[in-house]
Design a protein around this nucleic acid. Structure first.
Length: 592
RNA sequence: CGGGGCGUGGCGCAGCCUGGUUAGCGCGCCUGCCUUGGGAGCAGGAGGUCGCAGGUUCGAAUCCUGCCGCCCCGACCA
C-alpha cells in the first residue's frame, strides 16, 4: 500500500492537501464497546477510533485522538507563552544520582520505573521533572538578573501506577504539560503563581470546558498553597466543595468543616450502660436504641505510621484521612483491621468507646460540641448512653478531621455548599525552596548573597483533559466535543457518492471549507447514510454538513449542530459562509 | 499488593458444570446482486494452535497443576 498522506498540522489550519477524507484516514469505529472499558470516555474513545490499548495503562493515539490532544497542547502552549513561560524539552530517561540527590530515589517508591543500562548505571523513566529542571537551572542561572524564569514542556510521562484504569483517565503513560518557575523572592514567586493561575483559567476556558479551580492540600510536596483545576463531570472521581454564595472552592481534603454551635447550659444526664447484643454498625445501634446517628459517637482505630490512634467522630460523619494525616504529622494513616483493633483496644470493633480507653484519642471538633451521646462501652454487646465530653473522658486533641458534607455551610461566608464531582486536570503548587535547597540550586541576589531559588510547579494532564472533556460532554449517541478541542470542526457528509450532482456539490464544499481554513472531515465513503450519521454522532464533531437528496429536490444543504441537534437548511451557495459564521461565533464564546 | 472476575476469528458473546471426532452465533471484513436521509436485505466467502506450558485420558475449549495477560473494588496521582 502506498503511503497515505496524513495532515497533521491542523492547528495552524494548514490544509493544502485533500486528505481529510474519511475514506483515507484510520478511523476504526466500533459498533460495540470492548469489554475492557468501564467509564464513558474510555468506551467512547475506543468506539470512535481515538485510541487503542497496547498494554495496561498504555495507549496508542490514533489520528482522531491525536488531533484533539494537539489542540489542547496548542492552547496550553499559547497561554503559557503569553504568560512569559518558555517551552523546552527535557529527557525522559533520567539518571538515578539526581534522584538520590533530592532524596526521592528512596521516597518515590515503586511508581518510579527504574532500570539499568548496559553499563550497570541506574536510571528511571521520568514521572515528573523537578530534579532535571532544578539541575538545569542551577548549572545555568546564577544571578537575580536572570530571574524570574519560567520553563515548561509538553511530554509523555511514565508512572508505574499501582492500578491503571479508566482508559486515558489514569494511564501509566500519559501526556502532561509540566512547568517550573524560579523566582528571587517569595513575593515574586507569589506573582508568578498568580500568573499561572490566570493562565490556567484561560486555558480551560479556551478548551470550552466547565471547570473550577479549588484550594487543595499541598501534601508532602510542601509549600504554602496549591490549587487544583477540576473539570466538572458527574462521573468525576473527586468531590469538590463549592459555595453557592461566595467564591470559596476547595477539594474535600482541604475544605474546612465549620463547628456548629453548642447548646447553652445543657443538662448533663447521668451516664448509663446498656446492652446492645450484636449491634455493631452505627445504623444498627441507632435503630436498636431509637436514637439518631447525630447522637452517637463512633470510635475508629487508625494506624498512623505504625502507631494506633483512636478517632472520635459523630455517627453520621466520615473521616477525611488526609486531614488526619496532616494533623498527626505522619506519612501514612490507615484504618486498623478487626484483628489489629482488638489487639490495640482489647475490644471487638463495634463496641469501642472513649470512656476508659487507653489509647491516644483524637476527636473531631463536632464531637466536642455534643452532649449526652452514645458510645461503645469497650465491652462486647454493650454501649454507654448520656456520655459527655470532659466529664466522662478526655482526649489528647480535638481537630477538624472529617469529610465536609452538603449539610455543612461555607467556611468562608456561611453560605450553602454544593459538592459536585470533578476530574483533576491541572494542579499548581507554590513549592518554595524545597527542591532548590535539596539540590543546592542557588543564585546571587542584589546584595551578593547566595540564596536558593523560590520555585513553583504547574501541571496539566493533557491526555486526561481530552478524556475529561468527553466525560463532561457526551450523550447516548457519542461524544459532543467542545469546538476548540474537537478533532475537526465540521464533518461533511456526501450521502450518495454515486449521484453526480450531490458528489460535485460535496466536493466543491470541501474545497471551499479548506480554502477558508475550516477543519473538515469529509465522509466520502461508499456507505449508507445511516452509517455516516451514526459515525458522525459517535465521533462528536460539533458541526455536520449533509449533502443529500434535499440538494437535488430543493437545492438545500443541511447544517446540524451536534450539541443541540438543531438543524438549518440552507442554499448550497450560502452554506460555507453560514457555517464559517457559526464556527466563528462559537469559537468567540470560548475566548478569554 | 490484598479481594473479585475474565481470557474462544477484528468486536461482543455461547459452548466448559455432565470431555467425543467438521468449535458455534451476532456484528464487522471480502465478492456479487440489490438498496441509499439514521448502523438495510439476499447469496457466496475468508478468518480461530479455544492465553501459554505441563498433566490426566483412547480422546481436552471442556477436568487437574503452574505461569502469563487483562478488567473491576481498595491505598497513590496530572
Amino acid at each position: 500500500m502506498s503511503c497515505i498522506p496524513i495532515q497533521n498540522n491542523i492547528v495552524t489550519n494548514d490544509h493544502k492537501g485533500t486528505h481529510m477524507r474519511f475514506s483515507q484516514l484510520l478511523i476504526p469505529t466500533l459498533k460495540e464497546t470492548p469489554a475492557e472499558a468501564e467509564v464513558i470516555s474510555h468506551k467512547l474513545m475506543l468506539r470512535a477510533g481515538f485510541i487503542r490499548k497496547l498494554a495496561s495503562g498504555i495507549y496508542s493515539y490514533l489520528p482522531l485522538g491525536l488531533k484533539s490532544i494537539r489542540k489542547v497542547e496548542q492552547i496550553v502552549r499559547e497561554e503559557m507563552n503569553n504568560s512569559g513561560a518558555q517551552e523546552l524539552l527535557l529527557p525522559m530517561v533520567q539518571p538515578a544520582d539526581l534522584w538520590q540527590e533530592s532524596g526521592r530515589w528512596q521516597k518515590y517508591g515503586t511508581e518510579l520505573l527504574r532500570f539499568t543500562d548496559r553499563h550497570d548505571r541506574e536510571n528511571c523513566l521520568g514521572p515528573t521533572h523537578e530534579e532535571v529542571i532544578t539541575d538545569l537551572v542551577r548549572k545555568n542561572v546564577h544571578s537575580y538578573r536572570s530571574l524570574p524564569i519560567n520553563l515548561y514542556q509538553i511530554q509523555t510521562k511514565f508512572r508505574d501506577e499501582i492500578r491503571p484504569r479508566f482508559g486515558l483517565m489514569r494511564g501509566r503513560e500519559f501526556i502532561m504539560k509540566d512547568g517550573y518557575s524560579f523566582d528571587a523572592t517569595d513575593s515574586d514567586a507569589g506573582k508568578t503563581y498568580e500568573k499561572m493561575n490566570d493562565a490556567y483559567h484561560r486555558i480551560f476556558k479556551r478548551c470550552g470546558l466547565s471547570f473550577r479551580a479549588v484550594e487543595a492540600d499541598s501534601g508532602t510536596i510542601g509549600g504554602s498553597f496549591s490549587h487544583e483545576f477540576m473539570v466538572l463531570a458527574d462521573t468525576g472521581e473527586d468531590t469538590v466543595v463549592i459555595c453557592t454564595n461566595c467564591s470559596y472552592a476547595a477539594n474535600t481534603e482541604k475544605a474546612k468543616a465549620m463547628e456548629s454551635t453548642m447548646p447553652e447550659n445543657p443538662e448533663l444526664l447521668p451516664m448509663t450502660k446498656i446492652e446492645t447484643p450484636g449491634k455493631r454498625k452505627v445504623k444498627a445501634v441507632c435503630n436498636f436504641l431509637d436514637i439518631a446517628p447525630q447522637n452517637l459517637v463512633k470510635t475508629l482505630i487508625y494506624v498512623a505510621d505504625g502507631e494506633p490512634v483512636a478517632v472520635l467522630l459523630r455517627g453520621d460523619h466520615e473521616v477525611q484521612e488526609v486531614k488526619l494525616q496532616n494533623i498527626l504529622g505522619v506519612d501514612e494513616v490507615r484504618l486498623a483491621d478487626d484483628k489489629e483493633t482488638f489487639d490495640f483496644a482489647g475490644t471487638p470493633t463495634g463496641y469501642l468507646g472513649p470512656v476508659g480507653l487507653k489509647l491516644k484519642i483524637i476527636a473531631d471538633l463536632e464531637v466536642a460540641r455534643m452532649v449526652n451521646f452514645t458510645v461503645g462501652a469497650n465491652e462486647k454487646n454493650f454501649h454507654m448512653q448520656n456520655v459527655n465530653f470532659g466529664r466522662d473522658f478526655e482526649v489528647d486533641q480535638t481537630a477538624d478531621l472529617r469529610m465536609i458534607t452538603a449539610d455543612d455551610s461555607c467556611p468562608s461566608c456561611g453560605g450553602k455548599l454544593e459538592l459536585p464531582r470533578g476530574i483533576e486536570v491541572g494542579h499548581i503548587f507554590k513549592l518554595g525552596t524545597t527542591y532548590s535547597e535539596a539540590l543546592k540550586a542557588t543564585f546571587l541576589d542584589d546584595q551578593g548573597q547566595e540564596i536558593p531559588f523560590v520555585m513553583g510547579c504547574y501541571g496539566i494532564g493533557v491526555s486526561r483533559t481530552v478524556a475529561a472533556a468527553i466525560e463532561q460532554n457526551h450523550d447516548k449517541d457519542g461524544i459532543i466535543f467542545p469546538l476548540p478541542i474537537a478533532p475537526f470542526q465540521v464533518t461533511l457528509l456526501n450521502l450518495s457518492i454515486k449521484d453526480e450532482e450531490i458528489t460535485k456539490a460535496a466536493e466543491s464544499l470541501y474545497d471551499e471549507f479548506l480554502k477558508l481554513g475550516i477543519e473538515v472531515l469529509f465522509d466520502d465513503r461508499d456507505e449508507r447514510p445511516g452509517i455516516k450519521f451514526k459515525d458522525a454522532d459517535l465521533i462528536g464533531i460539533p458541526y455536520r454538513v449533509t449533502v443529500g437528496k434535499s440538494l437535488t429536490t430543493e437545492g438545500k444543504i443541511e447544517i446540524r449542530e451536534r450539541k443541540t441537534g438543531e438543524t438549518f437548511s440552507v442554499p448550497l451557495a450560502e452554506t460555507t459562509s453560514r457555517l464559517k459564521q457559526m464556527i466563528d461565533s462559537a469559537m468567540q464564546s470560548c475566548q478569554v
